[in-house]
Design a protein around this nucleic acid. Structure first.
Lengths: 358, 358
DNA sequence: TTGTAAGCGTTATCAG
DNA sequence: CTGATAACGCTTACAA
């Protein structure tokens, strides 16, 4: 994978056509500046010579890469494997392609996000799930690159795309309370690395707050003690549910902060002989594609994942500002509860104890 | 997203340090060529000035982008959303990161793969699912870029990573035959675009051949007439099953060429009142992560998806040749049947008719 | 050990 | 309407 074959350059074409390099450039980029005749002659020769402008040289000269970066604290292996990220990225890709932009993934390189940011050649960055406490936001800010944050928290000065995490979580909890549930387990998302500290990342904290607000109607209170966390994958959900069960938790309802984890939790519950939703109700978060196809279909909190990606690109292109007013744009998209088949009335003969058996 | 703030360049650092640009370059890339003292002085100043080498300029000078391209005929939205691609990409990413390489996705730009290839700035390309009939392989070959093909067919002169598609399919069909099934439906993968012609793409054809070989033991014969195709997604599977059912197909067993489609097909079957596996057995292909988590867990043909990605990178880096002999390397990885919960003995009172009711 | 200067392949500026 | 010429920011022979 060392050196490619010698390709013809703009100079070759110019020489062969008996014109300057600039003329060749014009023939492709601003043909109206040249006589139609010259243009067609140059193009013909270019075709013969199989001339193809070098994208890198073009980037250097234009000082523009025509690429936007997607920055996440998680490794590439989880990004590509996680349906939430997949759908988000699909949204970004759709909007980027429409704008003629390529995508570059920026994620910890040999464990260092900072280094990865330095090596990325992009015109702008979309961060996803990056907390205010991450040093990278300062780094990007200093680098002068435009950026917009998605799923962040505590960054009041940056253009942002968020969803109403708390409201959605609250809806989920209220739904369960309405079905008579009183014994809850919360399965949360573990921060990707130790760098973000031990306290729940922004999204996790917001959703937990929402769950708590939802159960308040029943006079209950949910804290981190009622929560078990793990990586946002199906395995992570299975594992988290098992750990909670082993620790004595006997919930009639499980509030899960990610659909992938919810699917894993369902699996674990069945393995333990529990029926869903008869013995235990499970409710996810995100409403990824697969949520419609589980058996039974997953009750979950919908958020407009692809739209978030598309809006992030639009906002980046708009310089992070509102069209007219020119003021900082921070968008809050809606979440809503989607009741499907994994939630049902609480089983009889339970309903007093709130905590998970600690 | 227009212009970034003026960043300090190598010249700034050189000036401030009272050395040449070359010295600054050395200080970062080959510090052993400079006195330790000079190196530390230069680095200090570089830090102060927040100097960060421009990746694009570096690429141009080195004539190396440190990036490999993943080329697929499907759009980015399906790539990021399809679990098979996700896991494959995760494999590529893992190996690429270890080698210090970034990844760029090359997929139809405004509908044109050719254009996308021209615009990509990469040192090498991994194609996935690209048939021999695609004009892009000629294009890449002419461009002089090293490349390796994955999931291709009919490209005897290119380095390749393949799996035993036919063998795996055969195992699947034999399993079903052994369970007494005689009425089959095949759900195949539709080629991504019209460019590849109407005949089933390479992988689809190979798997169909395998299925046919598998049912031969029961004296049966499977052709394209027993197959319905659709896009490789859950929706695609649901839709395909429904279409077949509407056309009169009443299979006791369904051979599906992709797990995603198999999940969709299960969903459709249940919607029609069929129990899986009591009324109808379903068997997928790929063994993606989620296959373990469906209910019941999906019987499927396993292929080493992530490994394919990793091997592709290794092979690309090796120049497509065997280590020692230097001869063209074409690797064939194994597939194997994983029996889980979606297959069972054929229901009674059926078993004569082979076709799907056309 | 360090500096000079010639690329790398474009685009952009500015005369002609 | 054309076409030199100078950037663009870095790497890397080659000199000193």
């Amino acid at each position: 994978m060392e050196q490619a074959a010698r390709r013809s350059t703009i100079a070759d074409v110019a020489r062969a056509a008996g014109v300057s390099k600039a003329a060749v450039s014009f023939a492709f980029n601003t043909p109206e500046r040249l006589s139609a005749e010259t243009v067609s002659r140059i193009r013909e020769i270019a075709t013969t010579l199989e001339y193809r402008p070098d994208p890198v040289a073009r980037m250097l000269a234009q000082r523009r890469t025509w690429t936007i970066g997607i920055l996440t604290p998680q490794g590439l292996d989880v990004i590509f494997t996680n349906p939430y990220f997949g759908e988000f990225t699909a949204g970004v890709a759709t909007a980027a392609e429409a704008a003629g932009l390529a995508i570059q993934f920026i994620s910890p390189l040999h464990g260092s996000l900072t280094r990865a940011v330095d090596r990325a050649s992009v015109d702008g960055i979309i961060t996803v799930g990056l907390g205010a406490d991450h040093p990278e936001v300062g780094q990007i800010r200093r680098s002068g690159l435009p950026f917009v944050v998605v799923d962040s928290t505590g960054l009041p000065d940056e253009p942002a795309i968020e969803v109403d995490d708390e409201g959605g979580a609250r809806l989920a909890a209220e739904h369960l309370v309405g079905l008579g549930h009183r014994d809850f387990l919360v399965i949360g998302i573990e921060p990707p690395s130790a760098t973000s500290g031990l306290e729940p990342a922004g999204v996790t904290a917001r959703r937990l707050r929402g769950y708590d607000a939802g159960v308040a109607a029943a006079g209950l209170h949910l804290t981190e003690d009622d929560m078990v966390v793990g990586p946002a994958s199906m395995e992570g959900g299975t594992d988290a549910f098992r750990r909670a069960w082993a620790a004595g938790a006997r919930p009639t309802a499980v509030l899960v902060m990610s659909d992938a984890m919810a699917i894993g939790a369902m699996h674990a519950a069945r393995d333990l002989g529990l029926r869903v939703p008869e013995d235990v109700s499970i409710i996810g978060y995100d409403d990824v594609d697969v949520a419609q196809f589980t058996d039974p279909p997953l009750t979950t909190v919908h958020q407009p994942i692809r739209q978030k990606g598309e809006e992030a690109v639009r906002l980046l292109l708009a310089g992070g500002r509102h069209r007219d007013e020119g003021s900082l744009e921070q968008q809050l998209l809606e979440t809503r509860l989607v009741v499907r088949g994994t939630t049902a009335r609480a089983p009889r003969g339970r309903g007093e104890v709130v905590d998970d058996g600690r």
